[in-house]
Nucleic acid binder design. Structure first.
Lengths: 305, 305
DNA sequence: CGAAAGCATAGGAACCTCCTTGGGAAACCT
DNA sequence: AGGTTTCCCAAGGAGGTTCCTATGCTTTCG
């Protein structure tokens, strides 16, 4: 089988017209280079050099081989270089999981920050929802992620809480916002909830279910939609109320439904955001950078833990 | 050190997302591929796959590496292919030595014939003079050549005579061409001789010197020029006479000096053309092809042996 | 003709490659 | 939930490769 080592020896010999000189350049003894070249000639089945008195002379077949050999060597060296520069974050891709709400909070700003610090990299923020992200983590397609920790069955995962965000009750009807909403009142409300696909494992849903169960009530939603933006929009149209993280409320309400306002639950409920990665994993520099930046931003819009 | 083998294992693993599948494709046991990949990771100093439960998942560094690995592999395969096609004369270069006069006889026709039979090849006809060609042979820069055998000290060389060509006396004065020219007459003639640089080792000179010496005369040349064409031209202008191979005379006189004619020497003298190569050398297909074609053409203009 | 240069060969030590076997973890299947 | 399968890693050993030193042979050069 053809090997780079053989090609290296061939090229050195070709350039020097001498096995001895090639060996010296490569830091080997002369018979070693001789052996490699002979092996190459054998695998190709053709003579590459004529052994002629003092020295060796390339055949025309060697002339034919040379450019390809050079290309192979060059590609292998390029490979080394490219990987090194990627590992030092001069290039390459940083891939990081992030659930929908967190992206809403700070996604664009995080990408901008990373690109400012590492102009050569490509950034991928992956995943729509915490559970989806978690699945990718579990499968190893992601190294680390920022997720809503409440929804995590954390087996095999290391979870590092970073910030918490209060869940607030939003409504277009000011009369429902005069006092904090209790479980009893929430159970009677007509709710519009997002994240339909993840109905049973969405962290906000889990929190609400627990909140209601503890007071002996059952959750009940009137309208299910996929996007948080749409549920806020619908609340603005007076079709129902909703419960969403406070940072999401502050971001979405002014934009989508200025007539909507919010009030706390009683007792207050918190969605916890956390960094998550496989237990025992050694994080790449890329992942560490993104964790650092994402944490900083999340903590600037939500409450640090 | 990076090796093609490692890259091959890496690529197979990358494509299958599995060491086992890669091993199967490559025809190895799984631990072997595993070892190669680990060695590659070690030499690069970076992780290329995350080992995650069942299967492995490429890291972004693997994504970075892949195109370079593919390029290196591709170049090595191209190398193989290129050499094979060159050895089968589908491509590559045929290099062949040929002394000036022989090129004059049939050079262009030989090149045309080779190209017709092997459209992909490049042809190099090398060398101005038999001695120069012979030197290149000795140094191994040429595999084989067609030379004027008279001038060869053939030690270490295999010489295969192919054709002989009579040396003829040419003149613009018809009165000197009525009878064959003897050594006595030649000694008195005013001669224009080509191949100045090779004065002492040119085969025609050697033949003439021997021809004259045997009759007790000394050679004497009036004008020395480099090119056979020029000497014929000068003979046409009546500045002297010359002795050149008959085939050269037939080719050059109509073109350069129609008023010139020729006559034999007495006794007739012959320049011998031969194929020459290093003793014991195994000739490449390319060289064999050129020998065959050149021989055919030389024998069509000169007298076969 | 002797000296120097340069390739080939030989033999042995170190290393690499590949295999088989066995173990453990994750995923899949009742 | 428990058993089975899948897939990876680890270990150990056989066989091959690589690389060295030493030596011999041929060519070249003074």
């Amino acid at each position: 089988m053809l090997s780079l080592h053989q090609l290296r020896c061939f090229l050195a010999t070709y350039e020097h017209g001498s096995l001895t000189a090639a060996a010296e350049e490569l830091g080997y003894a002369q018979p070693s280079v001789s052996e490699q070249v002979r092996a190459l000639e054998k695998t190709l089945g053709v003579p590459l050099f004529r052994r002629v008195g003092r020295g060796v002379v390339p055949t025309t077949l060697a002339d034919t081989l040379r450019p390809y050999a050079e290309q192979a060597i060059a590609a292998s060296e390029e490979a080394r270089r490219a990987v090194q520069s990627a590992v030092s974050l001069e290039s390459g891709t940083i891939r990081f999981g992030m659930f929908g709400a967190a992206r809403l909070y700070a996604g664009a700003q995080i990408v901008a920050d990373v690109l400012e610090r590492y102009p050569g990299v490509r950034v991928e923020l992956i995943g729509q929802h915490s559970n989806e992200v978690q699945e990718q983590l579990r499968r190893g397609h992601l190294e680390a992620a920022m997720i809503a920790a409440t929804s995590v069955e954390s087996e095999g995962m290391t979870v590092i809480p970073v910030a918490r965000d209060e869940l607030v009750y939003i409504s277009a009807d000011p009369s429902r916002l005069t006092t904090p909403v209790t479980a009893a009142r929430l159970a009677k409300a007509s709710l519009i909830m997002p994240e339909t696909t993840w109905r049973n494992s969405d962290s906000v849903r889990i929190l609400l279910r627990r909140f209601l169960h503890e007071a002996g009530h059952n959750p009940q939603t009137r309208i299910e939609v996929e996007e948080a933006e749409i549920s806020v929009d619908l609340v603005g149209r007076g079709l129902g109320d909703s419960v969403i993280p406070r940072a999401a409320a502050e971001q979405l309400i002014p934009r989508l439904a200025p007539n909507v306002d919010w009030v706390s639950l009683r007792p207050k409920q918190y969605d916890v955001m956390a960094i998550v990665h496989r237990r025992g994993a050694v994080l790449s520099p890329a992942a560490q950078v993104l964790i650092e930046i994402a944490t900083k931003h999340i903590q600037s819009v939500a409450e640090p833990i």
